[in-house]
Amino acid sequence: MSLRLALLAGLAATPALADVNIYTTRQPELIQPVIDAFTEETGIAVNLAFVQDGLVERLEAEGARSPADLVMTVDIANLKQIVDAGVLQPVESDILHDAVPAELRSPDDLWFALTTRARIVYASKERVADGEVTTYEDLASDTWEGRICTRSGTHDYNLALLAAVIEHHGEDYARDWAAGVKDNLARSPQGNDRAQVRAIWAGECDISLGNTYYMGLMVNDPEQQEWADSVRIVFPEFEEGGTHVNVSGIGMTAAAPNKEEAQQLMEFLVSPEAQEIYADVNNEYPVLDGAPLSDLVASWGEFTADTVDLASLADYRGAALRIMEEVGFDS
């Protein structure tokens, strides 16, 4: 065979790189920078489809014909819902196992965390002394009567925190804790996490529950920067644990038409380069040990993350919701 024919035969035997299709509940602009880095490195094109609502229902309806290779979402409750629907497949990868701690991935390899965010306390710089907030347990004490603001108790973020209380102390304690926090509210639960910081700025309350990345959103918004300047981030811990964290995560669909390329993208997303980009854009924390924090996130201080298994917290979501409804947290 001539050299020219051999080259042509080799080209014919090499399959073209396939696109990777992602369904994401995160705004595409929060993902695009790291996707662009992947495409530049590998030549593999990635299609992002923003699915704000009904992600599970869409995957179930599409079934084996779904074009989606990967799903990306936030919060352990959302990941569990996708797992329970049976629309994911396990991914066996030493790269993913080495990069993502065991408590931040599914025990059956159905999902892997990409970043974490802490559920912290925003505290008034004027009315809350340093060291006054130390534990989640203390939020139910009389110290905070009439001083706490929060969003709905049935929101996924607060249900995940209450699930962590159940994990550490059991359901009876968690019920008393939720009732105690309710008694300490300065107003009925309302708005999002940033609305609570605005309430602190306005003097309606002294502390609030929130996710860390909202500080990044506020300081970069001229209309909200004053709210951010009125508070500081405090990292409470459980009495026998650390600071509660939640995740953004990724999983491969059961129908994935481009499995090899999809796994390649998953493994890229936990590389040092991608972890730095993705965490920076989202004002979150990398899951890869040693990946650098953005200057802004680093300025919030250090904390010790709770090491409870997030998959087990997802199992407590139903109990957490029942407790919030029993104590009438939002009423």
Results as ranks from 00 to 15, higher is better:
L3V: 14
L8H: 07
A12V: 15
P15S: 09
A16G: 07
A16W: 04
A18S: 06
R26S: 15
Q27P: 08
E29N: 14
I31C: 08
Q32M: 13
I35H: 03
T39M: 05
T42A: 04
G43F: 12
I44P: 00
V46F: 00
V46H: 00
A49Q: 12
Q52V: 12
G54V: 13
L55W: 06
D69K: 00
L70H: 01
M72Q: 11
V74C: 01
N78M: 08
N78K: 07
L79T: 07
G86V: 14
L88V: 13
P90L: 13
E92M: 09
I95T: 14
L96Q: 10
D98S: 12
A99C: 11
V100R: 06
E103S: 11
S106I: 15
S106L: 12
S106Q: 06
R117S: 13
E126G: 03
A129L: 13
A129D: 12
T135F: 03
Y136M: 06
D138A: 08
L139K: 02
T143K: 07
W144V: 12
I148V: 13
C149G: 14
H155T: 15
Y157W: 06
L159S: 08
A160K: 07
L162H: 01
A164Q: 14
V165L: 01
E167F: 03
E167V: 07
H168P: 07
H169R: 13
G170D: 06
D172W: 12
A174P: 01
W177Q: 10
G180Y: 06
V181L: 04
D183P: 01
N184Q: 14
Q190R: 02
N192Y: 05
D193E: 08
D193S: 11
I200A: 01
W201T: 06
C205R: 11
C205S: 11
D206V: 12
S208T: 12
Y213Q: 01
Y213R: 03
L217G: 07
D221T: 10
Q225G: 00
E226H: 01
E226C: 00
W227F: 08
W227Q: 02
V231T: 09
V231Q: 00
R232C: 03
E237N: 08
E239S: 14
G242E: 05
H244I: 13
M252P: 00
P257T: 12
K259G: 05
E267W: 10
L269Y: 10
L269R: 07
L269A: 11
P272G: 01
Q275H: 06
Q275A: 08
I277F: 02
Y278F: 14
Y278K: 06
N283G: 02
P286S: 13
V287K: 01
G290L: 09
S299W: 05
F303L: 14
T304L: 05
T307W: 06
T307K: 13
V308P: 03
L310I: 15
L313H: 06
R317T: 15
A320T: 09
R322W: 04
E325M: 06
E326G: 04
F329C: 10
